[in-house]
Simulated scan of single mutants.
Amino acid sequence: MPLPKPPGHDARSPTAPQRPMQVSFPTHSPNKPRKKKPRRCCCSCCLWICVLLLVLILFLCLVGFAVFVYFRPTPPKFKVETLKFKQFSVESRSQQLYLTSNVQLFVEALNKNDRFGFSYDHLSALVFANDVSLGGASFPRFLQPRKNTTVMNFPASVMGSLVDNAEGKEMESKYKAKQLDLNVELRGNLRIIFRRWSSGKLEFQLWCEGVNQHKISMGMEPQCKVKLFGWPFFISA
Results as ranks from 00 to 15, higher is better:
residue 78 F to D: 00
residue 31 N to L: 15
residue 36 K to F: 03
residue 40 R to K: 13
residue 147 K to L: 15
residue 68 F to A: 10
residue 2 P to Y: 05
residue 63 V to L: 13
residue 141 R to H: 09
residue 81 E to I: 03
residue 116 F to G: 05
residue 93 R to H: 09
residue 203 E to D: 06
residue 122 H to G: 06
residue 42 C to A: 05
residue 196 R to M: 13
residue 168 G to Q: 09
residue 83 L to A: 04
residue 127 V to G: 01
residue 213 Q to E: 15
residue 62 L to R: 08
residue 17 P to L: 15
residue 171 M to W: 00
residue 11 A to P: 11
residue 44 S to M: 08
residue 127 V to L: 04
residue 234 F to S: 13
residue 91 E to M: 11
residue 225 K to N: 06
residue 32 K to F: 07
residue 184 V to S: 03
residue 168 G to D: 08
residue 115 R to W: 06
residue 117 G to T: 04
residue 215 K to P: 00
residue 95 Q to H: 10
residue 1 M to I: 10
residue 50 C to N: 09
residue 236 S to H: 09
residue 48 W to C: 15
residue 179 Q to D: 15
residue 207 W to P: 00
residue 160 G to Q: 09
residue 116 F to V: 09
residue 6 P to G: 12
residue 176 K to T: 12
residue 157 S to L: 02
residue 235 I to F: 01
residue 176 K to E: 12
residue 67 V to D: 02
residue 142 F to R: 08
residue 25 F to A: 03
residue 188 G to E: 01
residue 236 S to E: 13
residue 102 N to T: 11
residue 174 K to W: 03
residue 36 K to V: 08
residue 57 I to L: 11
residue 41 C to Q: 06
residue 219 G to I: 08
residue 46 C to M: 10
residue 59 F to Y: 03
residue 28 H to N: 06
residue 110 L to F: 02
residue 40 R to C: 11
residue 81 E to Q: 14
residue 188 G to R: 00
residue 185 E to T: 13
residue 171 M to K: 00
residue 200 G to E: 07
residue 192 I to W: 03
residue 14 P to D: 05
residue 136 G to N: 09
residue 207 W to A: 06
residue 135 G to W: 14
residue 170 E to G: 02
residue 32 K to H: 10
residue 149 T to I: 15
residue 136 G to R: 04
residue 214 H to V: 01
residue 101 S to I: 00
residue 121 D to K: 06
residue 199 S to D: 07
residue 125 A to G: 06
residue 76 P to C: 10
residue 7 P to E: 13
residue 61 C to Q: 15
residue 127 V to F: 02
residue 72 R to L: 07
residue 62 L to W: 03
residue 123 L to T: 03
residue 95 Q to L: 10
residue 20 P to Y: 05
residue 93 R to I: 10
residue 47 L to V: 09
residue 35 K to P: 14
residue 18 Q to N: 01
residue 155 P to V: 08
residue 196 R to Q: 15
residue 11 A to T: 12
residue 198 S to D: 05
residue 24 S to Y: 06
residue 61 C to E: 13
residue 170 E to M: 10
residue 212 N to S: 10
residue 96 Q to R: 14
residue 150 T to S: 13
residue 7 P to W: 04
residue 16 A to T: 10
residue 233 F to V: 13
residue 212 N to L: 04
residue 18 Q to D: 01
residue 2 P to S: 10
residue 101 S to L: 00
residue 13 S to D: 15
residue 108 E to P: 00
residue 42 C to S: 05
